[in-house]
């Protein structure tokens, strides 16, 4: 049996959702919610808090859906809202971004080779970073934001963003070293 979709294109679905159609909104939610919860989870260690942030993010998405001009990808637009919502959650909880000296020339010495960890393992590695480091690292290395954009989002200076990234990398490198030692039985 072939299921005929009620809304043929995503554009129609968005249009219906913008007019307040709850069924269309639910379909959009079901399509993007798992990915967006993944996005929120990168910034927020606790899954329940991450889900809270996702919920408030989706409420904002549906309230402002009329403002979406179909110029870029819809997924990118939602993702942006989720990232900003996650950052504002971190800021509400007063996460600290230490404004320290820039050390961008000092690259980590230990090579970070390829690995075959599962996603949960990677997530736990990122979770081990302090809030400020993690936010800058995820924004820059995973989401691809520039330091200038990160500085604006987190209300910090560009140099602070760079130093935070450097420190996040160094911490990750240390963690990797430990993992490798344990893995190869050197300790």
């Amino acid at each position: 049996m072939k299921i005929i979709p009620f809304y043929k294109t995503e554009k129609q679905l968005i249009k219906k959702s913008a007019s307040g159609n709850r069924d269309a909104q639910r379909r959009l939610y079901e399509k993007y919610a798992p990915k967006m919860l993944g996005v929120c989870r990168r910034y927020i260690k606790d899954l329940h808090f991450a889900e809270d942030v996702m919920v408030s993010g989706f409420v904002k998405v549906f309230k402002n859906l009329k403002a979406f001009r179909h110029e870029g990808s819809f997924e990118g637009w939602i993702r942006q809202i989720m990232v900003r919502e996650s950052i504002s959650h971190l800021r509400k909880n007063q996460f600290v971004v230490y404004d320290e000296t820039v050390m961008e020339q000092a690259h980590p010495q230990t090579p970070m080779d390829s690995f075959d960890w599962d996603t949960e393992h990677i997530q736990s590695l990122i979770d081990s970073l302090p809030d400020g480091y993690r936010a800058v690292f995820v924004l820059h290395a995973i989401e691809g934001y520039k330091h200038q954009e990160i500085a604006e989002m987190l209300d910090i200076s560009e140099s602070t963003s760079k130093s935070q990234l450097f420190k996040a990398r160094r911490v990750l490198q240390e963690k990797l070293k430990q993992q490798n030692r344990i893995g190869y039985g050197t300790e």
Partner: peptide, 10 residues
Amino acid sequence: QLQKREIKPS
């Protein structure tokens, strides 16, 4: 790996 990651909400 992280971009592929999906978590099913409650």
